[in-house]
Design a binder for these strands. Structure first.
Lengths: 342, 342
DNA sequence: TTTGCGACGGCAACCGCTTGCCATCGTTTG
DNA sequence: CAAACGATGGCAAGCGGTTGCCGTCGCAAA
């Protein structure tokens, strides 16, 4: 067995290929390839020799070459609408874990809240990806469905027929949030809308409205506001103008922004205005006052999305559910309280 | 000019290759390749015809194929020690912007605070990367330098001879922080250490100690603590045990954790204990009380790191500085105040 | 007019790996 | 005992680009 010297860091020598292994073990390169990827297709004894040599030579497969001939790239893209939104931290943590465990690389893509950019990037990278997770697609249903025919997709918080998804059931939680406020005596409640074309935003608003109807109340809707703390000022002002004594906010980021603005305007929370957020992101528990919010299993959503995607890529995998719903629960903190009687 | 029909989403047809373009324009594939990558090497008129055809056919280069033959992959890895640490949000935002602008893909890698994992992953992916940015290497200097011979590297907040770096000059800011506390009357000041093998942690402690010496004071050091809010409890308790009236904390994440613990223990901030953080991460401004901290240009660090890396990859680029220092400044908020007289 | 040279394109050999197809061989089956 | 078959391994054709080398051609210099 001729053994080219093992590859060392910093030594400038040529990386080890399957040909080196083939030469070392005296078989053909194709056999090496099979032994490594398709065990069972090759005699056990031969395979062991090959594996030993591979280990010995510190063989690392060249993923480009593999991708070129097999079409599988070993990379999954995760698209978020804005990397700076803490909501995605959780998602990324979840996807990260799961992908790493499965040996996939994670490509982070920021779509900057633009559907066009989303399509364009995805199209460009199509051949370099095994699949993608859309954590906040701004695409219309039709485009999304079409895209899904072209590349394996899983969405998070977005329900489109034919596209598997992991959905955080915040809408269901909305009734908890609303009941909470109603039981505290609030009758004038505002819903603060997030970005216009956000699917979860619409879903949340519908849910809120349904609760209102059930209680024969009328909730006001203000917005839309781009999600982000910045928008908090305008949102807070808008809420105050409605005369509401409580509000449910599209997400925590916006809610925290509102809290800040209220402080500036010396509106007391929760005495003058109760605030409920959604998601329970990093910061929701230590802002002032701590935010009552619908705690979402964000990280789990990321994990689930990856599992769905991977099982989809594996032809041998059992068929799986098209969509997974993840329950949320209300976490009551300091930003909600009884309606001021006066 | 024979024109294969343009590729459409959802149509299952074969992606367009340079051969299609070659056939369409009647030139050789190699000419197409040159026209697209090496303009100037090809006649302007021909190039235009080729470019037109490429546009017409919606040609998208296959990055794997390109990588295989040229060695350039168009991907840059960004290694962070923990995706959930908000400090990296800023870094990622910076790298993201800059990489996207330059047409590179960003691979996010979480090293889970492990040097071994760091080396292993980097080694495995070596051939699939054009370079890497280490946002928080836990590697010893030697390993890092060795690795840098093998793959273009830029570090953030880590100074190793021979490896270009973007360094946030928090140590320099430490004197501002310390002077601030001293001028408020504090004499017993504690430094709360971050993770043991963190380079910035050591640098910050050295700086703090230098200031102490200059003022003929003795600062206590407590820790080390893993960075993360969780560690805040232990850290807070440790600080209180020293009898210090103020503390400077390795980073904001830990500082926020400390703040929470102090609240639990009903220690008033800043009346009983002043707290200064580092970095000014998301949350530092809205926690309670808002955190006095050394504001770091985190996003800029990401951008700078990418620029350095890219200019390094471009052989035609002008030589650049080995290391860039980014200044910080003290942002005074509510968590620091005069020493209680009594 | 001849020589020389630069500009421009084509040829073909890779890059490292996968995979369809075929050859071989020992064995089970009719 | 012959035919059929499954297990195993080799051959070679790609996958889509890149690039060194060479041929051709037009034009300026000698």
């Amino acid at each position: 067995m001729r053994m080219p010297r093992a590859h060392q860091f910093g030594s400038g020598d040529r990386p080890v290929t399957i040909n080196d292994i083939a030469a070392a073990t005296g078989v053909a390169a194709s056999t090496v390839s099979r032994a490594l990827n398709n065990p069972g297709r090759v005699n056990a004894a031969t395979r062991e020799r090959i594996e030993a040599a591979a280990r010995e030579l510190r063989y690392v497969p060249n993923s480009q070459a593999r991708a070129l001939s097999s079409g599988r790239t070993g990379a999954i893209a995760v698209l978020v609408s804005d990397v700076t939104n803490p909501f995605y931290f959780g998602v990324l943590r979840g996807t990260q874990m799961q992908l790493k465990a499965a040996g996939y690389a994670q490509l982070l893509i920021d779509t900057e809240d633009s559907g066009d950019l989303e399509v364009e990037l995805l199209h460009k990278m199509r051949r370099s990806l095994d699949g993608a997770i859309l954590a906040a697609s701004r695409l219309p249903d039709r485009s999304l469905a079409k895209l899904a025919e072209d590349i394996p997709l899983v969405t998070i918080n977005r329900n489109v027929r034919g596209v598997p998804s992991a959905i955080i059931d915040t809408p269901a939680g909305m009734s908890q949030a609303a009941e909470h406020l109603i039981s505290l005596g609030h009758r004038d409640i505002a819903y603060v809308s997030g970005p216009e074309r956000s699917w979860p935003n619409e879903a949340r608003w519908h849910a809120v409205r349904a609760v209102a109807t059930r209680h024969r109340l009328t909730f006001t809707r203000v917005g839309p506001f781009p999600s982000g703390r910045r928008s908090g000022s305008a949102a807070a002002d808008a809420v105050l103008n409605t005369g509401a004594t409580a509000c449910i906010v599209f997400n925590d980021l916006l809610a925290i922004g509102i809290l800040q603005r209220l402080r500036e305007r010396e509106v007391r929370v929760p005495e003058d205005l109760s605030v409920v957020g959604c998601d329970d992101i990093f910061g929701a528990d230590f802002c002032h006052p701590p935010l009552t919010t619908l705690t979402a299993p964000i990280e789990q959503a990321g994990r689930v999305a990856v599992s769905m995607l991977l099982s989809r890529l594996d032809p041998a995998a059992p068929a799986m559910r098209q969509s997974v719903m993840l329950p949320v629960h209300l976490t009551v903190r300091g930003s909600t309280g009884p309606r001021a009687t006066g």
